[in-house]
Simulated assay, not measured.
Amino acid sequence: MRKKFRGVETSKRKLDHIEICLNRKVESSYTGFEDVMLIHKSIPEIDFEEIDTVVEFLGKRLSAPFLIASITGGHPKAVEINKNLALAVEELGLGMGVGSQRAGMEGGDLESFTVVRDFAPNAFIYANIGLPQIIKDVEVAEKAVEMIDANALAIHLNYLQEAIQPEGDKFSRNAYDAIEEVCKSLRVPVIVKETGAGMVRDIALKLKAVGVSALDVGGKGGTSFSAVESYRCEGYKAEIGRDFWDWGIPTAYSIVECYDVLPVIATGGIRNGLDLAKALALGAVVGSSALPFLKRALEGVESVMELLRYYIDGLKVSMFLTGCRSCKDLRKVEIFISGRLKDWLEVRGYDVSKLCIARVVE
């Protein structure tokens, strides 16, 4: 009975999150991309038609370096959302993640997860489970992958959210041991994914040491799950959620900290193709976004595809204006970094002038 109750509780929480993200202000401020400028090339020396956005990521070919980040799952309302997202990424040759599969394992709506592979049989799909669940039972990793026949597993880090959430799991002891065990036993690559608070180099290095294949830096500047949870809290606990609304490491800074440690997915406030191009220029391999696709998924698959094309076409314009035929070329362009991002990088010991000229990792 307790497991069934937890499943109902988790499913209700997922519905709360959907409704809050659709109807309330939930985004944090400052991604760092505001202080990054791609240097315009007056004569690009390429034709627009030459531009090729295809990339390889964790053994899978993507038509462009973009994923729809994990949004939801575990509630009947999520079936339509994930179906439309899946149809769109399958049609355009992209990829996506699912929301935390804890809900599905605790008796929540299973179809809201399995629908993704049903309608995206060839797309890159990653499973998703929280680190606290992995610490409790590493076997949930394999169950999450099998549930949706995933190409990779994302272990999400959402301790900011857990700390604010009334029913949050506030423990992380033995985390690296659990992650290492998953990496050794799982048949697919493991991504470790932050969810809005960003990541720094020392964490990235430790994750690499235990066998992680890629990092989703999930930086500040997109959805703030402290904000989301503040709407679910009462009294002073809601105030604490608002106090930590802008907590975290901006996405652009997180990319610089991690790009030469492991392949980076840049998530957190990427709202157009120019943001995506800046993320790639800083060293990310792919970018992703979640919140803008939630409303579009409820509007229908065509609406999702229109937004995806907006991102990809904006990326291509950025590539054309910097003379880049491929996404790998974009990682070699000279850039200009100013403002708070420059200040923070210098405090951390980076030579910003050199960083503006060379960031290439083959």
Rank of each mutant, 00 (worst) to 15 (best):
P189Q: 15
E234D: 15
V210E: 01
V210R: 00
T195P: 05
S230W: 15
K184P: 02
V210F: 02
V217H: 00
G219Y: 05
L205R: 13
G221T: 08
V210Q: 09
A204V: 05
V188N: 03
V212Q: 11
R232A: 08
V217Q: 00
G198T: 03
E180V: 10
V217F: 14
V217S: 02
I203W: 07
V210H: 10
G196P: 02
V200Y: 05
V192K: 04
G218Q: 14
T223R: 06
D216Y: 13
D216K: 05
M199D: 03
E194L: 10
R232N: 09
I191L: 12
D202V: 03
T195Q: 03
E234C: 01
K237D: 03
F225L: 07
E234K: 01
D202H: 01
V212T: 11
K206G: 07
K208L: 13
C233Y: 04
K237T: 05
L205P: 02
A214S: 08
M199R: 01
C233A: 08
E194K: 03
G222L: 12
L215P: 00
K206C: 08
S230M: 15
I203E: 11
F225V: 05
G196I: 07
S230N: 11
V200T: 05
G241L: 10
T195S: 14
V190L: 13
S185I: 07
A238W: 05
I240F: 12
C233R: 09
G218W: 13
F225S: 08
I203H: 00
K193I: 04
G198C: 06
I203S: 09
E194I: 14
L207R: 11
A214C: 03
G235Y: 06
